[in-house]
Every structure is written in structure tokens, then in C-alpha cells.
Amino acid sequence: MAIRKENGRIINGYPNRRADLRKHPRVRETIIQALLFLAGFVSIFTTIGIVYELGKEALLFFRTPEVNLWEFLTGTSWQPHIEEFGVLPLALSTLITSSIAMMIAIPLGLTAAIYLSEYATERVRKILKPTLEVLAGIPTIVYGYFALTFVTPLLRSIFGEDVVEIYNMASGGLVMGILILPLVASMSEDALHAVPNALREAAFGLGATRLEVALKVVVPAAMSGIAAAIIVGISRAIGETMIVAVAVGAGPNFTFNPFRGAETMTGYIVRISGGDLSYDSIDYNSIFAIGLLLFFITLTLNIISQRIVRRFREVYE
């Protein structure tokens, strides 16, 4: 389309039509923008949906005469068929399995991250980093299978079959640690790698060894990212479902012994909803109460992790 000038006026390529260059409302553009905004708003609907639906059913659960909030939060027995609704057995086994997982994932994940970022050559790093990311993408049911068919028999042969039950928290926790390891390693490595080289070079220049540079300069500088990685790892462990559903057991059990079977919050939800479930039964409502608790725990952890990153991030340059 050629633009010509005739008598000082801009004329477009078509004869006898003047180009209208004034701003005018464009309906199409507005509609598109509105549609795009709606797509963005779907995420808000999702959150509202989660809080509303979980809250609604949980409220029905707490309205039942047999249930009271105090007993729910402090009771040590979860036996819906004899009307005992204390969430502690479920919460305790979630806590135990997650702690075991973090005892594996934090030390191994952090040291692996330091190795990758500070010691490994660029070539090794280029191979190991994507490998970590692919491994983080293996479905959790595969890890559950591993826990049940490999780790449990291994534990039983080490500690004795009468000590370790077929379904036990230790096996689930250990495998959960292996599951979370790549996540913690990968996120911490990102944080370590982002520390500017000038800091390392300054430390080396003052005569520090590689270890001193890593532990006294790089790790403190990347602390916010590492802390965030750990918290995200914990939140992942608490919400992890298939490993515990397969390997940890199917019955609430208030015990501190990791070699015994128990049921975590997520495991309970899966078992109840996997069976034939009638709506408006107390079982149905109870999984929503536990789901709501789970949602708030993980949400709090995620918010804390974001805060840490924002507040304690060391900004360079």
C-alpha cells in the first residue's frame, strides 16, 4: 500500500480515500483484551473454588454433632466408624514421613548442588543438570512402586521382619526423600549459580580454598534461594500422595515408630475417595476437612518461601 502526498495531504494507495489517522475505538481489540483478562482470571476462580468447595464440605463436617473442632485438632484417634475424629494420627504420620524425607533430601540435595555449581566442570554440569530435571519429572507412582517392591524388602532384611512391617513409614519417607532430592538440588543449584563470579574471584584472591569460597561466600550469598528450595521441598513432601498410599499403609495409627504402618493425611483422602463413596456421608465430608487443612499448611509454606526469596535476596550489581 503506497502512501503518497498530494497537495501536502497524505493520501493512501486507493484513489479518493483519505487515510484516517485519528485515534478511534477498536471494538475487536477491546473484546480480545477482555477475553485475555478472563483467561487470567481463571486462576482466581480456581483458588476461590478450592477454598469455597473445601470450606463448604468441611463446614458440614464440623457441623455434625459428633465432631467438635477441639477434639479434631487434639484427638489422638481417628476412627470414623466409632465417631472418633482426632486428626493427630494422620498429621503425625505426615510429619514423620516428611521428616524422614527431608533428612535425606536436604543434606544430599544441598551437597549435590554445591558440587554441581562450585566443583563440577561445565561439561559435567551440562549433563547432570538436565538429568536432574528429567528425574524430577518421573511420576510419583513409580517411586511408590519402588518403595513397596525394593526399599521395604531391603529394610526388612536389614532390621528383621518382625521389626519392620510390610507397610511402614520409613520406606515411604526414604523414597519420598529420593523424590524430593532432585527438586532441592536443582533449585539450590540455580540459587548458587546466580551468585556473581566477582565474589568468588575476590575470595580466591584473598587466598581462600575452594571449600571456603563455597561455604563462606557463595552459600551465604545464595541463602535465600536455598531456604526457599528447602521449604518448597517440605511442602512437596507434605502433599505427596502416591508413595504413601502405596507403601505406608492403610489405617490411621498413632505411633512414633517409623517401622510401623500408619496413614498420612493424603493417604487417607486417597483411600476414602478411591472406594465407593456416597456424597453427604461423614466420610465424604471428612476428606474435605483434611484437604482444607492440607491446603492451608502447604499454602502457608509456599507464601513463606516466596517472602524469604523477596526479603532476603542479596542483590548484586
Partner: peptide, 27 residues
């Protein structure tokens, strides 16, 4: 409102998958 949407998306990415299952069951 846009800041809310952004924060919210980051939070949703960290919600355990089983919670989505319950949302799907209810809705």
C-alpha cells in the same frame, strides 16, 4: 488485581495435586 493474579498463579503452582482432585470431585 493483576498483582493478585500473579501471586495467585505462583501459589497455585505449589498446591498439592490431590487438592485439585478434590476440587474436581466437588465441581
Amino acid at each position: 488485581i493483576n498483582r493478585l493474579i500473579r501471586t495467585n498463579i505462583n501459589n497455585l503452582a505449589g498446591v498439592p495435586s490431590i487438592i485439585y482432585g478434590m476440587l474436581g470431585l466437588a465441581i
